[in-house]
Design a protein around this nucleic acid. Structure first.
Lengths: 221, 221
DNA sequence: ATTATCTATAGATCTATAGATAATGC
DNA sequence: ATTATCTATAGATCTATAGATAATGC
């Protein structure tokens, strides 16, 4: 039946199905014929909606980060918390689809992220953060959050429980002690990592100094 | 000739050839038959040296990070520079083989990195850094450097020149201003990112405070 | 005329195993 | 006997295009 009364395929349905395959069977399991079977159509039909496989993957990547919501916070001296929230949202969104994480690295058009950067840059300016630091903060946040989340996403199910897997106290005593002295979860480490970074960036700036945590103190100049 | 006088294939030669293919033709171009042709042997012969393709990829990943040398620094109050050097070595080593970067994310056994962490943990202890911070620092350094370098490695040749590509001053004025106010290269941003992070981690600790840069100042308590 | 599917198929690969075979080392 | 290659091949895919075809909307 060469043209159905109602279209069988839509881009969004195709992307959702692709993500479902990747989530449940892994990235390797994904292919165009595979997706077609999942949708109950023939493989070549998908090429009517996507130019090629790369465009499909790109659409999947967009869908994954499209779910990440931007923080609704007022500019001000606690501006670092905007980025902490952003980073955590980002982490949650990606970990929901951890098998798709490698796609983000390769197929994510950077121009998409840039639209968010503009808003973040405005936020920084409105918060009184010196302009010289904006690129440091935005570039740093991109690298840090993408990297931090990707490494977490590809971790095997077995090694997810501990921060470092298979530490042998006999041959790695210093590491074992370090682990024993740590009481933070992976999520908490990530969250604090963002605060630390932002605090460090503004360490020499006059103001607005970061007051990221309850114990946060002001820098003297 | 079913067995040559001298072996035609060695693991190291195979890995080196694999990396050469990946470097010059991209990760997609790599396959076992492809590697065999490059070595002048038949594809199945490679399965005598590697159990499967995954083991081969893993060996390639190991080779890439094997080139990264550990810093030779004495423990002391400028301990952050140990990590800055480590991070820069890591960056240089990976950017030498940027097409192989995605392999590191997926095929790198974490136990390999752990051997280095033990040395780093000893170094932190000897420098007088409180034990509670060791995991924060090691975990943070892993996420930060892997992430920062991967995002840099997959950047397309065209967009490498600028920090953010295709910024339109009309629609993205805040971003354009931020870029204009930035005078740092990608490498420099990465380097300072590590310093900022480490400085931030110890921001509340009594001592040894980080003195990462010439302008570095001490925290008051 | 345009839209959205289908069938058919080109064309190129891949991964991995089984089993033969000759050189080497004991 | 072991080592290190080879040939042959199973078996499974893939990506993508060409061209047919029927439903829809003008």
């Amino acid at each position: 039946m060469p043209r159905p009364s109602k279209p069988l395929i839509s881009r969004t349905a195709a992307v959702a199905a692709a993500l479902e395959i990747i989530d449940t069977e892994g990235l390797e399991a994904f292919s165009v014929p595979r997706l077609a079977k999942h949708l109950g159509v023939q493989a070549p039909s998908l090429y009517y909606h996507f130019a090629d496989k790369a465009e499909l993957m790109s659409a999947v990547a967009l869908h994954v980060i499209g779910d990440v919501s931007l923080p609704r916070r007022k500019p001000g001296p606690d501006w670092p918390e905007y980025f902490v929230t952003l980073g955590l949202n980002f982490r949650t969104g990606i970990l929901r689809h951890r098998n798709a994480a490698p796609i983000l690295l390769q197929a994510l058009p950077r121009t998409v992220l840039l639209r968010r950067y503009e808003e973040a840059a405005e936020f920084l300016a409105a918060s009184g953060v010196p302009e010289e630091l904006h690129v440091q903060i935005l570039d740093g946040m991109e690298r840090l959050s993408l990297g931090a989340v990707l490494t977490e996403a590809v971790r095997s199910p077995g090694s997810r429980a501990t921060i470092f897997p298979n530490v042998d106290p006999a041959s790695q005593p210093a590491l074992a002690r370090a682990l024993a002295a740590n009481d933070r979860t992976s999520k908490r480490l990530y969250e604090e990592m963002i605060r630390s970074f932002l605090y460090g960036v503004v360490r020499d700036a006059e103001l607005p100094a970061a007051q990221p945590t309850a114990q946060g103190r002001r820098l003297t100049s």
